[in-house]
């Protein structure tokens, strides 16, 4: 292995591509589910609802203190057993590796996004809430039209960082025998002994995608920037 030979990458491209698509799909679903659910969790905490607020706080603390890989394991093995008990016949109801991955990532990321949104909510000036009250806006309109648009603008760089981490974390699905971009690359690398080429190429792919995401957020920020701020 004196010289680098990238031809193997070209040959293996369809397999890598399918891995990449899986990574992107998982990232996209976990992002949408996580951000929507996370925003709801943050609002529940923000409203300081008596019982449900504590439950949510507990959920967020739990998810943030356990490694994602462990959550994936638990979900994969425990949820079928729980579902089996609930369905009455006692036999485990398998939910499959792919579903496990999508659901777990969504629930896990929701905890992280909720913390970001929660901090963002606290950063909004009290006067904004008072102006909404004075104008008789409903709570729903207050948050939808005034508060959350400001929170999302302020929090967008942190949301982006979290999403890039999410994208990189999709490689953990190997524990469920699923194949993402990194998984595909390492399988091929082991198979044909071209580890350096393979890992170089996918590093470039990760770099390209993360940079593209940063660019995308930067242009969104510019477009929706609050003028004069």
């Amino acid at each position: 292995m004196n010289s680098l030979d990238f031809s193997i990458v070209v040959q293996a491209w369809p397999y890598l591509w399918s891995g990449l698509l899986f990574s992107l799909a998982l990232t996209a679903v976990a992002f949408v589910v996580g951000l929507v659910l996370g925003t709801c969790l943050a609002l529940v905490q923000h409203f300081e609802l008596p019982v449900i607020g504590r439950l949510v706080r507990g959920y967020v603390a739990l998810m943030r203190s356990i490694p994602l890989i462990l959550v994936l394991f638990w979900f994969f093995f425990l949820v079928p057993i729980v579902l089996g008990h609930l369905s009455g016949n006692g036999r485990p109801v398998p939910i499959g590796a792919t579903w496990t991955a999508f659901i777990t990532f969504g629930l896990f990321e929701a905890a992280y996004y909720s913390e970001i949104i929660r901090v963002g909510l606290r950063a909004v000036n009290r006067g904004q809430f008072e102006a909404c009250q004075a104008l008789a806006l409903s709570t729903f309109d207050t948050y939808r039209s005034v508060i959350l648009p400001q929170v999302l603008r302020v929090a967008s760089p942190i949301i982006l960082s979290q999403t890039i981490i999410l994208f990189q974390d999709t490689s953990l699905v190997y524990v469920l025998s699923l194949t993402d971009l990194l998984g595909a690359a390492s399988k091929l690398a082991q198979l044909n002994g071209r580890l350096v080429e393979m890992y170089l190429v996918i590093a470039v792919v990760y770099l390209a995608i993360s940079s593209a995401a940063s660019q995308c957020v930067a242009s969104l920020r510019k477009r929706y920037a609050i003028a004069g701020r």
């Binding site: 004075a134 806006l137 309109d141």
Partner: peptide, 26 residues
């Protein structure tokens, strides 16, 4: 109607949108 010491305009909305929001929603 109320006018505050610190204005409390909505910074992400234009001047005219600030004025339109409540009449439309409320």
């Amino acid at each position: 109607g109320m006018v505050f010491q610190s204005f409390n305009l909505f910074p992400h909305l234009s001047v005219v949108e600030n004025c339109m929001l409540a009449p439309m929603k409320v």
